[in-house]
Design a binder for these strands. Structure first.
Lengths: 138, 138
DNA sequence: TTGAAAATGAAAATCATTTTCAATAAAATA
DNA sequence: TATTTTATTGAAAATGATTTTCATTTTCAA
């Protein structure tokens, strides 16, 4: 299970297992849409009412550092986080309900190669994100 | 010249031409890298020392609304703006000096079509951004 | 079981951005 | 050109998100 795996990872990296971290992990690991710190706070407090917003920030920071979550960039803002994709994948976001799906984007190599030759840039990284409407919302 | 064109556009949309706006436009229109409001402020004040940061924010807001500038998303933050591309283009950013170049990305249609069929999403928009090192910085 | 060290929440501090407001400047009108 | 209307301005205050500080609590290794 993702939750337990994340907790193990935290532990293996020298972080202690606490009620607050369990609540944050339980929240973010099982949600398939991007959540802002405040949203995580609101949800996670159902499990741990004593949880502080500061601890949410601190826990998200650690989860990001361990690449267990990643920041999601959107037109409305870039403060939200989501469980990170394992392999090199890209995000597809529903503009209606926020649901997120990851997909493979290896087809980009040719395009990147072309751009590299055309511009003279050495290209090291790429961001691709798709926005649309999921089946359920259509 | 881009600067004059932007000023004309502002005027045609009912906004007045002021020293402050000229300074902000002169700054952003000629810079080929993304600038944060504070950076715009620092540069534009050389031309108009009385310029206030608030006015920078307000002017950037109007320029974005007229699609003359666009927000640039980066790992370090998403507060920076750059002169917008005319056609549908994507950004290539130098991770060393920040220089930005636009490129065409029409090759994406096939990929997007595949993802759409695979996921059931209707895809309405896509973001693609490349990061690397420009020729001068290599 | 105990004690050192990490983690916590609350409050304060910081930083970016927005709002308020009285003074000023642009441009429409006379 | 002088006048008037109205948008625009900068400063200060307010806001909202995030970070830091700190005394207290909790975890976990010994």
């Amino acid at each position: 299970m993702t939750t337990d795996n994340w907790l193990t990872q935290l532990q293996e990296n020298g972080y202690r297992l606490t009620e607050a971290r369990r609540a944050v992990v339980d929240t973010v690991a099982v949600t398939n849409r991007a959540l802002t710190p405040i949203q995580v706070f609101d949800i996670a407090r159902e499990q741990d009412p004593a949880l502080g917003l500061v601890t949410v920030y601190r826990t998200l920071e650690k989860l990001e550092e361990l690449h267990l979550i990643q920041r999601v960039h959107q037109p409305q803002g870039c403060q939200a986080f989501i469980a990170a994709s394992q392999a090199h994948q890209h995000l597809l976001l529903c503009q209606s309900c926020g649901q997120a799906k990851f997909f493979e984007g290896d087809d980009l190599d040719a395009l990147i190669d072309t751009i590299s030759k055309k511009t003279g840039y050495q290209i090291h990284e790429h961001w691709l994100q798709l926005f649309g409407i999921c089946e359920a919302c259509q």
